[in-house]
Design a protein around this nucleic acid. Structure first.
Lengths: 301, 301
DNA sequence: GACTTTGTTGCGCTCAACGCAACAAAGTCG
DNA sequence: CGACTTTGTTGCGTTGAGCGCAACAAAGTC
């Protein structure tokens, strides 16, 4: 029965791909003598000549071509085996990449990832934080498996796995200078200094739409994508910010700030969305994570 | 990418087959600790548990069952690879046995074997020379892979790979006593001393058939299966011989003798044949040789 | 509770596999 | 045609991976 040592076949394949023993050595961070010996050992084990050697490098013999084809099939079968193991392990291992609007970060960790990671400790995450534009780009270019964004437009490339209406609320410091009424109309809001996200953020574009709709311009003292900065602005009683409530769940719980609705018949409802690329087959770990993400505050009423 | 060391998978398979680590150790002439460590190393490499361990021995987990199936498939593919290597190697090494009518020997070497051997120097030949009877017996009894014979009868055990009509001709010394006309009819031939092969030779039986057909008896001064003797007879202007022309190609080229046709409406056409046993699987080297044999003069018009 | 059988682990030894340096062979260039 | 460069190979010394041995822990059996 033929016996093929993985390190020997690795040297052989590298030599075939690189064209010379020395280039293969460089590629594998080994010495040329190591490559040469491993190939020779493989030829001995298989009792056939696998490469033609010369001043201009190495080429596969007919037997070498057969072996390359065999090793290629083996790689595919090892991939299949890996997939079977993964499926069997019930997604106990893998990596999921997620692009999120910064507003989601707290909710994501508090209400989804903490629990999920305790159940599947060997699943890892790659997280990028950015605007709704960024999130959509990451998802459609398949650099992220999943996306969490606010106020996503309709895009045929994007499938919405979960969505929830999340009205914007006015956030002011509890008992602060601006905590003057239970509900703000826009005219009143326009007199208060506020910090808001830019239009490239779903929240920012929503606010801009309301301004246009009502013919009012807010006193946007600060425009930033940093949710931390927006919270710090409010925490320091410098004014108000306008965000979906789920963004500040923990601050509301801690009673450091209060959420007041925006009144006077304006449509300030936004939608938070859980996104994936239409038609893309996700790894099992990502599919499982979706179920957990649906329990975030962002996706509940 | 999964990496499976053959010695690790060997220990795993042995443990599965034997039922305990210690039995596997005995089976492979190793220590139980070696088996245990190799299986553990394989589990680490594959990041999955392969066996359940207990006082009553070891059993495959679901992942272990998947791996066993994979390894079984791999064994079959290694067998196939081995067969491919063997087929490839057989073309370049091996031995072919051939039984030939002596008349074919010159043609065989001049127009086939010389070229073939330069291409495949490690292929050797076993040659027996004899009558058409001998050739057929060697082929049907599988003592020869291939046979070259003249005027083979129909035999269900024999497959004809190539055949060519090769008429008999009268051979006399150029410018000799008997070189008296461009075409001999049988009556004239009957007056000339001649040397011919015996009836067990295809040529001999063909000549006998013509004698009966025409009611004429040749002056057969010498009857021998030795083509050299037949040629020597003519070369010494002792008379004529009757052979297919391809037997004396080189003598004709050297202009030491001439070939004259046999006239007067008799059917003196014989057939030279390349034979193999019907249903016998020939080694690759013999299959390759067949292609070269077809370029002999005996098989061209 | 004593005994047996199983798989595992600590430890020391050995040799297989590596890197390094030198060599041989074969193109290339002036 | 000689000098040079690039290729693959081989001799030699070093080292650490893998083995065997002995002891241990766990779990059935009597």
């Amino acid at each position: 029965m033929l016996n093929i040592e993985p390190r020997q076949s690795a040297c052989f394949l590298a030599a075939m791909q690189c064209g010379t023993v020395r280039a293969a050595a460089e590629h594998l961070a080994l010495e040329p003598s190591t490559i040469s010996r491993n190939i020779a050992a493989l030829e001995t084990a298989l009792a056939t000549t696998l490469i033609e050697r010369g001043r201009s490098g190495v080429r596969a013999t007919e037997a070498g071509v057969l072996l390359m084809a065999f090793l290629k099939r083996q790689d595919r079968e090892l991939d299949l085996l890996q997939s079977e193991f993964d499926a069997l392990a019930n997604m106990k291992r893998g990596s999921v990449s997620i692009a999120v609007g910064e507003g989601f970060v707290g909710d994501l960790f508090d209400n989804a990832l903490a629990n999920f990671s305790s159940m599947y400790p060997e699943i890892t995450f790659a997280l990028t934080v950015g605007s709704t534009e960024h999130v959509i780009r990451q998802v459609t270019s398949e650099q992220a498996h999943l996306g969490l964004a606010y106020n996503v437009g309709t895009d045929s490339q994007v499938r919405v796995e979960a969505a929830s209406t999340q009205p914007l609320v006015v956030l002011v410091k509890r008992g602060g200078v601006f905590d003057t009424q239970k509900s703000f109309d826009l005219t009143t809001l326009a007199t208060i200094p506020c910090a808001i996200p830019p239009k490239s953020f779903g929240i920012g574009s929503m606010i801009a739409a309301v301004e246009v709709q009502q013919g009012v311009r807010l006193r946007a003292v600060i425009e930033t994508g940093s949710i931390s900065a927006l919270k710090a602005f409010v925490r320091n009683d410098m004014g108000c910010t306008i965000l979906p409530q789920f963004v500040v769940e923990s601050e509301l719980s801690a009673q450091t700030m209060v959420a007041r609705s925006i009144s006077s018949g304006i449509s300030a409802d936004g939608v938070s969305s859980l996104l994936r690329k239409e038609g893309r087959k996700l790894p099992q770990a990502a599919r499982l994570l979706i179920k957990h993400l649906k329990s975030m505050s962002a996706f509940t009423e």
